[in-house]
Amino acid sequence: MKIFEPHIHMFSRITDDYEKLALAGVRAVLEPAFWLGQNRTHVGTFIDYFDTILGWERFRAQQFGIHHYCTMGLNPREANDDRVNDAVMEILPRYLEKDSVVGVGEIGLDDQTEKEERYLIAQLELGLRHELPVLVHTPHRDKKRGFARCIAILQDMAYPMERVLLDHGNEETIQITREVGCYQGFSIYPFTKMDENRMVAIVQEFGVERMVINSAADWGVSDPLMVPKTIVKLRQAGVAEHAIQQLVWDNPVGFFAQTGRLDAAELSQPPGFDRRETFDGNSVLRGQDPTR
């Protein structure tokens, strides 16, 4: 089964993870620009980070047979930081036009401050201007209210809901999002947010329409194989193969293909690679024999 992992921060992961993802059937990953675990102090570090996920990280993924795409945005945590917020907004338009950028994100709300809302709205306007889908991070605290607030903002702007993915959902939020017509993401974590068994129950109750699942794996305790592991649980529960394929491939591919920058036919084959190839003079081999 082909898998599109629609939310994973490979910037923070090691090459073993790429090997395991490829073996588990992950054909493509989507890396949302996000927070790095501590606040950045000037825009230059954002520029270097954006360039890395467009450049080296994409190359690194290809060296393991995985297509790599990303979304660009000012994350809600650092939207609160006046050392970087306006300067990042200034550089975003050129980054939103890069070839492997298929959306604006992660944007959204975290602490649900007035500043977070202001930069969320400004980035939704960028999404409209650049005709891109948006990947919206929702708060981990006071989530239901955060979901409702994100939806209110989107509705105020008459944002086309088929181009919105509200992420980090759970059993409570699905009731809200089903009615507004947007996509909903479920981040399957080893111990928090949502686990595989709860996800199975959601699929059995609500189906897979406009739903995606992801690992949201990053620099913390997280598991990049959560999507393949959830597939196993879904099969064991008797969920039909076509429904699983829709959940882990058709839905995420269809959502991000709205950009016109993601070719489903090209995605269906793994990228060709040669580990002797270099990016800016660097290969992933670190001096090892490419034939081993």
Binding site: P93, R94, E97, K98, D99, G260, R261
Partner: peptide, 12 residues
């Protein structure tokens, strides 16, 4: 138009 915004669009 802004050249840095236009330039990445050329191949597409």
């Amino acid at each position: 138009g802004d050249l840095p915004v236009l330039f990445p669009q050329l191949p597409r």
